[in-house]
Nucleic acid binder design. Structure first.
Lengths: 185, 185
DNA sequence: GTCTATATTTGGATAGAC
DNA sequence: GTCTATCCAAATATAGAC
């Protein structure tokens, strides 16, 4: 048996994620990633042989898992507005009440490899579809549900940007309060 | 008299701006900035003695001037909904119909110097105040106008992020169509 | 005012000891 | 599995010729 790992994968992905989310792909230096994880740069290359690219892929996969958990209430038998409210509660945690940026924003800038940006794009698509399904369950037509779901993602991403620009995280929580009404009108 | 300039300041600021907006502060390399402007790196340092930081400051100042132009209809004697529609037309041009990102998003990531982020924050504040004034003119209370104005900026920034993530610029133009109704309800 | 050339630091990545 | 040491490329910035 080899040497025991000093940090488990889940924690590594979470800490890498914070650096990528805050700095973007290009801005996330190996030094910053290394320091956040608590491993030397060379040790990170042992876990991620293809380097920064593999780290970003792992982060997006980990983000996808968190997103699935946040969206899980939407497929429950809860009242739709309540289900959306529960999604919002989980999102508030994932985004530290508006203090953390979203990978859909910061990892889709020019400078990120194309496949990373494509992977982020699929996340956005998946998220919209899940919210649209909830809107349909609330009685909306397919077209109206798609419109509302896209509007919801627009507000989520926009609130995170504005919260960051104004240095006022409360913008995010206030926006979340409007989402049940938007999706389950 | 010295040698004539080969590129005027306005064009330089516009081209630097495109690079900063697409790549963020950290991702905007001197090489990329130099190539976009059509001057060697050393020539950029002649125009901007303190380097990248001065370029970013100049870009934000230039963006502020463009923003003032876009917001100018809001202080005209037009019907408020028409004024907002005119603002939207101008914004569509500034953001190339959703194909260009916003400095409030990409220049506020960790990695940008604090004063650059603060300058961007003041831009956001100014923008919100101008839209709130329009909402007041449309009959909203101060509190309601502030709420609508912030919601409008949230949607603008969010639509740009989602358009980029989905690689679908039309998200931006579709969002713009909703702004007159939002601000001048 | 712009250029070529260069200094210096940081970034991404690898080799090999333990 | 993690580390120190190192390589190479790219990034920021400067010097000095024209």
């Amino acid at each position: 048996m080899g040497r025991a790992v000093s940090v488990d994968d889940e924690q590594i992905h979470a800490r890498l994620g914070e650096v990528f989310r805050a700095n973007g792909y290009a801005g996330a230096s190996l030094s910053a990633l290394s320091e956040a994880v608590g491993l030397q740069r060379a040790s990170l290359y042992h876990r991620f042989p293809t380097g920064k690219h593999a780290m970003a892929t792992a982060v997006l996969t980990s983000v996808e898992a968190r997103l699935r958990q946040a969206l899980e209430p939407l497929t429950s038998d809860l009242d739709v507005a309540d289900a959306v409210a529960e999604m919002c509660t989980r999102l508030a945690g994932d985004y530290r009440d508006g203090r953390l940026s979203c990978v859909l924003d910061t990892m889709t800038l020019t400078g990120a490899p194309d496949d990373i940006r494509a992977q982020a794009g699929r996340l956005a698509q998946y998220w919209i579809e899940a919210m649209a399904a909830a809107a349909v369950r609330a009685g909306a037509t397919e077209a109206e549900a798609a419109r509302r779901a896209r509007a919801a993602l627009v507000r989520i991403e926009g609130a995170l940007v504005v919260a960051r620009a104004l240095n006022d995280p409360s913008v995010f929580d206030q926006m979340l309060a409007e989402l049940p009404g938007l999706l389950a009108a």
